[in-house]
Design a protein around this nucleic acid. Structure first.
Lengths: 186, 186
DNA sequence: AGGTACATGTAACATGTTACATGATTCC
DNA sequence: GGAATCATGTAACATGTTACATGTACCT
């Protein structure tokens, strides 16, 4: 149950329409909780039905017209409850690690290129986060503005740094031209 | 589409019944791709229907009896295809980071305890992985057995280390007795 | 005969993904 | 008036979660 809370947070930061939310989920918030516009519209409908948000009144036609939402007191209370609630950490869930394990059984053909591709992508994402940090949290004026936002950004930087380090290491470790297929039917 | 491939990998490592797979998904494989027994039985049915695995023949009653599966050549081929295929890295998706961001808006009450709780859990998981590493990959006899399995384990260790580091740092950074509620209705 | 562990499954629902449909506004 | 963009939405499906149902084997 994280999407509704992600939307509540975004709407508290700034009342928005569905499409505006979608755009914001393509950056900042979306860096650690992505969502498509269909998910967002569906969830906005639910949040409105349950009385956590409301659509700002608008004149004229509805279909095809921008519809802005704002958070109601009940929505803010629910978000505060969820923020403090106990919730288990997400276990790791990564297809790439699964594929490494599969490669140990069916052979590593093609794996090398894929690891290098991921390495490049993570390097780019890391550079992106570091640019944001330089822009929004320049060194020197610490302890100031937004320690929580900075902590979140540092998490992104730390995670991408980990992947870059691990992928570089693993690419090196990988047997260079390995057994094509340990299978031998018949 | 990772669960079927996780199951194919597990079955190639060792033909198993649904319940045995469920147990294995509670450790090793489950460390980076968890699944409940319902998911596993449903997926085993699909994999059998599509001809990627088959149930080993058994005499007598079926309901309530163990049913072992093995991977067919088509299943092995599909797994090899998937291992080498291009697939985008999963974006980060973490409710805890979301909650930090929410706390920036509705206040940090209760957050401190939750961060400390997560820190303890990640420390325990890290210790667990390190114990496995000491047992299965003792230093000295490197370059040997299973470089891919070791790489996967190192990923687990690296990720847990990151969380431990980040959580410890963030707990320290957190404003000690912060603004309870930045809200003020009416 | 009753309880427990083993073993497979069904049903209902929540969440996430993909493809498509429809109307409004703006610019040429 | 046609194309592009903004904006909201439906439908169908895939995946993941939760609760429950049913039968077997073994131990006491």
């Amino acid at each position: 149950m994280s999407l509704p809370h992600a939307i509540l947070t975004a709407l508290l930061e700034k009342p928005s329409s569905g499409l505006e939310l979608t755009r914001r989920f393509d950056k900042s918030i979306g860096f650690f909780w992505s969502a498509t516009h269909q998910q967002i519209y569906r969830e906005l409908g639910r949040l409105e039905t349950t009385g956590l948000i409301r659509a700002l009144p608008q004149a004229g036609p509805v279909r095809g017209q921008k519809k802005e939402y704002e958070v109601l007191p009940a929505g803010r209370a629910e978000l505060a409850r969820w923020t403090a609630a106990a919730e288990e950490p997400r276990p790791i869930r990564d297809p790439l690690l699964l594929r490494l394990r599969a490669a140990a059984v069916v052979g590593t053909a093609g794996l090398d290129a894929e690891l290098r591709r991921h390495l490049a992508l993570h390097r780019a994402q890391l550079a992106h986060y570091e640019a944001i940090e330089r822009r929004d949290f320049p060194p020197g004026e610490e302890a100031g503005a937004e320690p929580l936002q900075h902590a979140v950004l540092r998490a992104g930087i730390g995670l991408e740094s980990f992947w870059v380090r691990w992928l570089a290491e693993t690419v090196d470790t990988l047997p260079p031209a390995p057994a094509e297929e340990p299978a031998d039917p018949s």
